[in-house]
Nucleic acid binder design. Structure first.
Lengths: 213, 213
DNA sequence: ATTTCGTATGTTGTATTCAGTTTTGATGGA
DNA sequence: TCCATCAAAACTGAATACAACATACGAAAT
């Protein structure tokens, strides 16, 4: 039996690769992306690359100029801050709604306790639980549009997808996650909001440190 | 001399037409959209229709099922409320930021005074000024991501694009716009936020009335 | 009668071709 | 030398062609 390899549409994978390349500074602000060249490099036709371009333009990573190709936008401190500020606003809103609506947090909290007990936290373990926590909160917010926005921001510069974090960060985040989920479990919206705001704000400061100037 | 018709990409116009048709209930929840058929009807090829589908899926209006076509999502009260709640959250944030950052409101306020004096407010006049006001506030918020989200919501069910409004509504909105811009002019963020929240909340209630059950 | 397997059909995902626009670069004149 | 003009190359937007996937239907077997 083979791997249950769920093959995504090519346009999605192409978008991921280009996105990663932009965050990795392989492309820089002002660079023109050659549709044909990228299709050749990736070994696909121009169509899915074109569709990926449109997604990336929606995300604000590139700009599409009619008949004149795509240029990479600046991934500078302002871009990162703008993204983070939206994540603060929306994740905080989601946390408050989750606390208000009620959400089962027992399994997540027990997984957090296990992680808290570990002497060393590995990146993959952290990221996996991190994703589960946030997505469960989005679900509990019970607003499809909010969920959709947060899903989109997850591909942005404000998550572990873009930069490696320190073990210190993982430990601090774990404690913050416990704060957030505890507040949600107790159905204290304002407390949940405050905890989430603190969580993502610290994360922002942490990441902005890596983008000097 | 011909019209200075700035021709947008076909995919944009196609998306607009389908969006309008969905809001007009020409398509209903669960309906399957036939890519080829729509391309034929609109007299374009499948490519731009396909790209339009992807945009509409991003907006949450339709769902793309791999190899199984697109289905129209329910434009029910929850959908409208979800959209409006996000608009309240984001427009309020933008108004607060605009007040904080400072924004020149003189021209907009004088246009509002003229409109306030009119005995009868026409739809196009109102919509034109309405759009100018909101977009100027978005600009003044100085957050690109926020601006982008609000731009997207403008195509949603929470603006005049989807339903006709009463003259009464235009008059009430005009007064509310004056409140908002006055607060911004005086650089009172909280006051601006409150005024914006009230403005869009009333608009939501007004539109939800037209979607009974 | 029910279930399973295989084929047929329709629809999408991807590739390729076509057409129109923008850019580039050369050429000629001031 | 500098500028304008025009042709050719390159690239994108749109149209068409091709391939793969999923569902539906029907026949055969239990």
């Amino acid at each position: 039996m083979e791997h249950i390899k769920k093959s995504l549409p090519i346009r999605i994978e192409v978008a991921s690769k280009i996105r990663k390349a932009i965050f990795a500074r392989e492309y820089n602000a002002g660079d023109e992306l050659n549709l044909t060249a990228i299709a050749l490099i990736l070994g696909v036709s121009r169509t899915p690359v074109r569709e990926a371009f449109q997604s990336l333009a929606d995300e604000g990573l590139i700009t599409l100029r009619m008949n004149r190709g795509a240029v990479v936008n600046a991934i500078d401190r302002k871009f990162i801050r703008d993204n983070f500020e939206m994540r603060i606003l929306l994740e905080t809103e989601a946390a408050g709604r989750a606390a208000h609506n009620g959400m089962d947090t027992t399994d997540l909290l027990s997984r957090l306790e296990v992680m808290k007990g570990k002497s060393d936290i590995e990146r993959d373990d952290y990221e996996s639980l991190n994703e589960d926590i946030h997505m469960r909160i989005w679900d509990a917010s019970d607003n499809e549009k909010l969920k959709r926005y947060l899903m989109g921001l997850w591909n942005g510069p404000s998550t572990g997808h873009s930069v490696e974090e320190s073990s210190e960060h993982y430990r601090a985040s774990t404690l913050e996650h416990i704060d957030i989920l505890t507040a949600i479990a107790q159905q204290h919206p304002q407390q949940a909001r405050d905890a989430m705001t603190a969580h993502i704000t610290r994360s922002m400061i942490n990441i902005l440190r890596k983008y000097p100037e």
